[in-house]
């Protein structure tokens, strides 16, 4: 063993055996693993479909073609509370609007709200949590106590306070919801960084001359990615529901625009007389959240070299 250290002899040996493996790209391997996971593929297909619906509706609205069976915002009180039938697949709501059209139309807002709010809280929360966990000491105390204060205030109240400062509107609501859930991400990221940073490989990274930010982004965060991905997929659902709550208070989506959470909130009173006005938006939210969860699960496995398929 000790004697085949000479570079040349080892090289020749390997060449002779023609055992030169072609380097396989990491991305390709991840994709292969993801493809093997049926549930993740289903999730991905649903997400793609939802995105397609959202984009189609948005474009058709821009160029003024109506592709939906009915105008989602047109109310006709003579047609209120029609049970699902061939004409109105999902029935009509209290104002006589077609629920199916509203759900399809609501896709673009709900998807936008969920993804954007999570993106905001995820990026800021991960950054703050990383700094707090990695630095420790006074920095940690300062950041985490601020987070604790934010957590201590009920999130809706805090979101209302943010909206009071930012102003009304859907975009402001999304920002407010994104800001409110920062502490949740900061906490879990800080906690896992505290445990990961004690690993020898993090110390090894420092010994070979890595700077702090490279250690965080290259050596620590990839090792806690599974946690972040799972939390983020779950966060999408709570963001959709929080937007609904804000909309209910008149701060988020303004009527008559359709948004799933908002539809759910406003139909609440008719749960016994017209359950379909709640059930269908509820199903839409559930399917979206489920799709993101399934995909997130698969993504987590694909990102972990240990569970990747060769």
């Amino acid at each position: 063993m000790a004697k085949d250290n000479s570079a040349n002899s080892a090289e020749n040996l390997i060449q002779a055996a023609e055992y030169v493996e072609k380097p396989e790209s990491q991305l390709k391997e991840m994709w292969e693993t993801l493809k093997q996971n049926k549930a993740a593929v289903v999730g991905l297909v649903i997400i793609a479909l939802l995105a397609l619906i959202a984009i189609t509706v948005w474009i058709s609205e821009l160029i003024g073609i109506q592709i939906l069976p009915y105008d989602p915002n047109y109310s006709d009180m003579t047609k209120s509370f029609i049970w699902p039938n061939a004409e109105h697949w999902f029935g009509t709501d209290q104002l006589g609007r077609d629920v199916f059209s509203r759900i399809i139309d609501g896709t673009k807002i709900s998807l936008f709200v969920g993804v954007t709010a999570v993106a905001i809280s995820l990026s800021i929360g991960v950054l703050l949590g990383s700094i707090a966990g990695y630095r420790g000491g006074k920095t940690d105390a300062l950041i985490m106590r601020t987070m604790d204060v934010m957590l201590a205030i009920p999130s809706i109240l805090l979101a209302i306070a943010f909206m009071a400062a930012l102003g009304k509107g859907l975009d402001k609501a999304v920002i407010a919801i994104g800001l409110v859930s920062i502490p949740e991400y900061a906490r879990i990221v800080r906690g896992s960084i505290l445990s990961v940073k004690e690993n020898d490989y993090v110390q090894a990274a420092r010994v070979i001359g890595n700077g702090d930010s490279r250690i965080i982004f290259k050596h620590i965060l990839p090792n806690i990615i599974s946690l972040i991905v799972v939390r983020a997929t779950l966060g999408i659902s709570s963001a959709v529901l929080d937007t609904a709550a804000l909309g209910f208070l008149g701060l988020g989506v303004q009527p008559p625009f359709a948004e799933w959470g908002d539809m759910l909130g406003r139909a609440r009173g008719f749960i016994f007389t017209a359950p379909y006005t709640l059930i269908f938006p509820g199903i839409a939210i559930t399917i979206t959240v489920l799709a993101f969860n399934l995909f997130g699960d698969g993504l987590r496995d694909a990102l972990d070299p240990k569970s990747r398929i060769k």
Binding site: N199, Y201, Q203, H219, P222, P305
Partner: peptide, 25 residues
């Protein structure tokens, strides 16, 4: 390092682990 099971980043290939000190320095 003492523990070879803890001293290598599980998310990096062996080639990347060895190349890293060359690249950052």
């Amino acid at each position: 390092f003492q523990d070879p099971y803890a001293s290598l980043n599980p998310r990096m290939t062996v080639g990347d682990i060895i190349a890293e000190p060359i690249i950052i320095n």
